[in-house]
Design a protein around this nucleic acid. Structure first.
Lengths: 221, 221, 221, 221
DNA sequence: GATGAATGAGATTTCATTCAT
DNA sequence: GATGAATGAAATCTCATTCAT
C-alpha cells in the first residue's frame, strides 16, 4: 500500500459527498426535483444508489444539502460584500452585477425554479428555503433600502413591498433561463436586464434632487 | 326520456370536457402537475378516471388543454383593456390594478407557476405559452413604454429589457402565492406590491422633470 | 353480454377481497408477516400487486383484515357459545373442544404466532390484536371463572392470573404447530393436550371436595 | 507496547466473539431477528460491521450462535437444581420460582420467542433447540410428574400431555413479555402467574387428600 | 485482525393507462 | 358514452454482505 494509494483512496472518499452534490444539482437542473431519480444522481456521481444514502438520509436532505453547500456560500458572500459603509447605490450595483455575472450562469441558478415548482409537494423544502435563503435575501435588500432612505440617498418608499420589486426582475432572469428561455427564439440577456433594472430602480428611488432642490430653492426667497 | 331529459343529458355531455378542465385546473392549483392524480380530477368533475381518457389522451394533453383553455380569454381581455389612447401611466396603473384585483385572486394565477415548473417536460406547451401569452404580454408592455417615451412622458430607456423589469414583480406575486406563500409566516400583500411597483417604475421612468423641464424651459425662448 | 357473463364477472369481483385474504393467510402461514411479499400474495390470489391495494391500503391493513374476517367470527362464535347459564365446567369443556377440533386444524391457528413474532416490529398490529382478540378472550375466561367461583362450583382462586394459566396450554398447541412441531419427531396431539389440560384445571379449580367431604363426613354422625 | 498491553489486547481479542454474542442477544431482544441490523450489533459490541463477519459467516449463523451460547448453561443449571430426592411439589415450586425470579427478568427470556418466530426460517435451529432445550425440559418435568405419581404424591394423570400444560403458562409469561406485553395497558405479573399456576396444578395433581391423610395417619403410631 | 465504504438486490407503495363490460 | 377493475412499471429507501486497504 503505497502512500499514493492511500492518498488517492482517501481523496476519493473525501470527495464523495461533493461529487454527489454536484451530480444531484445537475440532475435536478435537468429533470426537476420530483423527476430526478436517485439512480440517475448515483450514476452521474459514479456510485450506486446505496452510496448516496451513506451520506444523505433522504432525497429531501440531499436537496437541502445542495442548497446549503452550493447556494449558502453565495448568500454569505453577498451579505459580507454588502456590509460596507458608504452610499447604497454602488452596493446595489455590485449585487446586480454579482447576480448577472456569477449566479445567473451557475448551475445553482436553477434552485429558485425547483423550489417554486416543488414547494407544494414538499413543504419541508419550502420552509427550509424560506429560512435559509429567501428571508435572508429580502432582509438584506430591505436593510440596504432603509440605509439609503435614512441617509437621504433614496426617497422614502414602502420598503416592505419594494423589496419584492427589487427581487422580482432578478428572479425572473433565472426562472426564464430554466423554463421558457430554452424554448424562446428571443434570447434573454440577463446582464442587460440587470443593468436596465438597476437604472430603473435607482431612478425610481432617488431622492428628487433637482426637483426638490429646485422646489426648495424656489420656495426660498 | 322526455325531450328535456335528452336535452339536459346532451347539454351535460357537451359540458363534460369543460367540467373536466375546470376540475383539472383546480387540482393543478392545489397539487401541481406531478402531484395531481387523475383520480382526483375525475372525482372533482363527477366522472371516473376512464372518462377523462375519452376526451384527453393523456395527463400531459389534459394539462395542455387546461392551459390553452384558461389562458386565452384572459390575455385577450387585457389586450383590449390597454388598447387606449392617451397618457401611458394610467394604463400601467390599470394593468397593475387588474393584476392585483382580478388575476391574482383567480385560479388562473397558478398558470405561470405551472408553466415554469413544467416547461422542461412540455416543450410544446412552452412554445404555446410563449407565443400566446408571454410574447403578447411583453410586446404590449413594450409598446406602452415606447409610446410613453415617444410622447415625452417617460425618459428614454432600454425598452427591450425594461419590459422584464416591469413584469418581474407582477410575476413574483403570483408565483409566491402558489409556492412559498402558503408556507411563509410573512403574508404577501399583492396589492401593496403592485402599488409600490407602480410608484417605483413611474418614478424610475419619468422624464427628468425639474432638470429637463428646466432645461427645456430654458431652451425655449 | 349474457346474463351469465355479467354474473360470472360480478361473482369474480365480489370474491376478490375474500380470495386475497385467503391468499394472504396462506402466505403469512408459510413465511410470516415480514417475510411475506405482497407479490406472493398477489400471485396466489391470481391478481397483481396493484390489485391488492385496491382493496387494502397497506400490508398491515391486509393483516388486520385477515384477523377481522377469519379470526373474529370465531371469537364471536365462542362468546356466543359460552353465554349460557348453568355450570361452568361443561362450558370450559366446550371451549377446549372447540379449540382442539376447530381452531387448531384451521389456517388461522397461525395468527397467534404471527402476532407474537412481529409485535415488536409492528406495534400497530399488537394493539389491534390485543383489543380485538386477546382482551376479549381473557375477559371471557375470567368471567367464566368468576361465575364458577360465585356459584360454589370452583374454589376461590386468583382469577386475574389464573386466566393466563388456562390460556397458556391452549396457546402452546397452536404455537407448537407453527414453529417447532414440524421439526419434531414427537407429534403433538393437540386434542390430548386439551383434554389433559381440562382434566387438570377442573381438578385444580374444584371446590375442595375431599376436604369438605371429609368435613361433611365427619359432621355426619 | 508493554507485556501488559499485548496481554490486554489479546484478552480483548479473545473476548470478541463473546462480546458480539452479548450485543446480538441484546439487539435481538429489542428488535427481534429480522428487525436487528448488524450495524446495531456491531455498534453495541464496539466493533464494526465487517468484524462480525470475521467470527460469524452470516446473520443466521450469528443467531444460532447466540441461542447456543446463552441457552445451554441455563438448561444445565435447571437440570442440576431439580435432580434431588424427596417430594416433588417443592421441586416444582423451585422450578416456578426460578422461572419467575431468574429466567423471566433475564435477556435470555427472549429466546423462546425468537425460536418460535424463526423456526420456519431456521430448521436447523429448530432441531437444535428441540434437542437441547425443549426435550430436556419436557423430559425433566415428565420425570418429576412420574416420580410424584409413583410416590402417591400426585394422582395418576396423562403425563405425556400434562407436561405441556405445566409448561404452557410459564412459556406464556416470557412470550408475553417480549411481544404483546410492551403494548398492553394491563401489566402482567409473571410472579403472580407462576404462583397461581403452581397452586392450580398442585391442586389439580394432588392425590385425594383424605386418602393420603389416611395413609399418613396410618403410618403414624 | 480490523475497518468502513460501497454494493445491489429487493420490498412496499403509487398511479397513469387500458379495456372488458 | 361511461365505467372501474386491473395492470405493471417505477421510485425511494434498507441492509446483509463484500473487499480493498
Amino acid at each position: 500500500m503505497s502512500e499514493r494509494g492511500v492518498t488517492r483512496w482517501r481523496r476519493r472518499k473525501e470527495a464523495r459527498p461533493a461529487e454527489i452534490l454536484q451530480a444531484a444539482l445537475a440532475s435536478f437542473q435537468e429533470r426537476g426535483f420530483a423527476g430526478t431519480r436517485l439512480e440517475d444522481v448515483a450514476a452521474r456521481a459514479g456510485v450506486t444508489k446505496g452510496t448516496i444514502y451513506l451520506y444523505y438520509p433522504s432525497k429531501k436532505e440531499l436537496f437541502k444539502a445542495v442548497v446549503r453547500s452550493e447556494l449558502l456560500p453565495n448568500i454569505e458572500w453577498i451579505e459580507a460584500a454588502l456590509h460596507q459603509p458608504g452610499p447604497v447605490a454602488p452596493l446595489l450595483e455590485r449585487l446586480f452585477t454579482f447576480w448577472a455575472r456569477d449566479l445567473f450562469p451557475s448551475p445553482i441558478s436553477v434552485l429558485p425554479k425547483l423550489v417554486i415548482a416543488e414547494a407544494g409537494n414538499f413543504p419541508e423544502l419550502a420552509h427550509f428555503y424560506l429560512e435559509t435563503v429567501v428571508h435572508r435575501g429580502l432582509d438584506l435588500i430591505a436593510s440596504l433600502l432603509r440605509r439609503g432612505i435614512a441617509a437621504g440617498e433614496f426617497r422614502p418608499v414602502d420598503v416592505d413591498h419594494v423589496v419584492y420589486c427589487v427581487v422580482g426582475p432578478l428572479l425572473l432572469t433565472v426562472l426564464w433561463k430554466h423554463s421558457l428561455g430554452p424554448h424562446d427564439d428571443r434570447p434573454l440577456d440577463a446582464g442587460a436586464v440587470c443593468r436596465a433594472h438597476l437604472d430603473l430602480i435607482l431612478h425610481g428611488l432617488q431622492a428628487a434632487r433637482s426637483a426638490r432642490k429646485t422646489n426648495r430653492e424656489r420656495s426660498r426667497p
